[in-house]
Amino acid sequence: MTVAEPAPPRAPVPPLAARARGVGGSPIRDILAVTARPEVINFAGGLPAPEMFDREGIAAAFRDVLAETPEQALQYATTEGEPLLRSGLADRITSFGLPTTADDLLITTGSQQALSLLATALLEPGDTVLVESPCYLAALQVFGLAGARVVAVPGDEDGVDPEALEEAVRRERPKLLYLVPTFQNPTGRTMPTPRREAVAAVAARQGLWIIEDDPYGELRYDGTRPPWIAACPGAEDRVVLLGSFSKVMAPGLRLGWLRAPAELRRACTVAKQAADVHTATLNQLAAARYLHVLDTHVARVRAVYGERRDAMLTGLPDALPEGSTWSRPEGGMFLWVRLPESYDTTALLPRVVEQDVAYVPGAPFYATAPDPRTLRLCFVTQTPEEIAEGLRRLGRGLKV
């Protein structure tokens, strides 16, 4: 009888990079996986309403591009982006008060990629990044993967406080400040014009990059549009403006853009060459064609979303415990709620989900010291009738 030779010893594979081990996944994605049942009214996601997608208009744009320029549409493209899309987008940005040329822009695979490219171009491990409190969760992930040290700047219902910002810059010597100043995710708040000017002035005095992320700015239901921080005096050479077609056209196209000073834009272009060469040519050309009807489509979306925001604001007083407070955004997709002192929205979530409704607890949006009483509600994905029913369920789930 032959005795089998023992298997040779196997050495373990090298470990993951420290930055990959230290950053977790998105709690929002985890919540969406748990609440995917069709009977759940889901206020947790940050998803546009699928019934509002202009399926016919977008399909027509793709058909026309494939019929007229198939060789171009199906071929590799330049890393900077299709000239037709950059030119049309530059005209659109200029019409909103910020003079822009096609050469100022880099097309990205969603604005999330723009954040990653900027982290690659700007941040060394250990560099300090200043953020709002609370802050867009995916930005915290990007900065964490870059090995940055993230510091929250105190603020109020108008956003970061300029005096606190100046003090933080002097104390921390950061590389950049990340902001979503219009209809912020998660709070829905908008920074007023005087504060935008004050923040730009701090950056000019102290030598600071500002990343101004604006995925929601066109979803305004009342009030007037403030200027971008990028358009404020002193901001010309130190603000990177990010935008996206995800909320106004369709997120599945994965189309975003960044507008940056030349040297930083070139560095981001090199980083993008290494990441994916270029954003999908066909999608870019279809979006360029669709720009001609985008304003009409956005007007329809605004009307529907504004009605849904109003429905949520109307139902919140009866749904929430006495002593709760919440934001009243002029646009965007989100409301921010703060429950009374004794509540912990993370601990309460499983009981709320039992009522077939869901929210996102506020804790993951904080760089440090989360407020356990907070939660985020998305109001754009459900009809007013579904919102009313969802809030009734939420009220039952929050009863302690």
Score class of each variant (00 low, 15 high):
152 A>R: 09
152 A>T: 04
152 A>W: 00
153 V>C: 03
154 P>W: 15
154 P>E: 11
156 D>V: 11
157 E>F: 15
157 E>C: 14
158 D>N: 13
160 V>W: 02
160 V>I: 10
164 A>V: 15
165 L>N: 03
165 L>W: 03
166 E>P: 04
167 E>A: 06
167 E>V: 07
167 E>S: 08
168 A>G: 01
168 A>I: 02
168 A>C: 05
171 R>M: 02
172 E>F: 14
173 R>A: 08
174 P>H: 05
175 K>M: 12
175 K>R: 08
176 L>Y: 03
176 L>M: 13
179 L>K: 00
181 P>A: 04
181 P>Q: 05
182 T>W: 10
182 T>Y: 07
183 F>R: 02
184 Q>R: 08
184 Q>H: 13
185 N>C: 08
186 P>C: 05
186 P>W: 00
188 G>Q: 09
191 M>E: 07
192 P>K: 12
192 P>G: 11
193 T>P: 07
193 T>N: 11
195 R>I: 03
195 R>M: 06
197 E>V: 14
198 A>E: 01
198 A>W: 00
200 A>W: 03
200 A>S: 06
202 V>S: 02
202 V>H: 02
202 V>I: 07
202 V>M: 05
204 A>R: 08
211 I>G: 06
211 I>T: 07
212 E>P: 03
213 D>H: 09
215 P>T: 10
217 G>C: 11
217 G>M: 14
218 E>L: 15
219 L>F: 12
220 R>A: 12
221 Y>W: 13
221 Y>D: 05
223 G>V: 15
224 T>G: 13
225 R>E: 15
225 R>G: 06
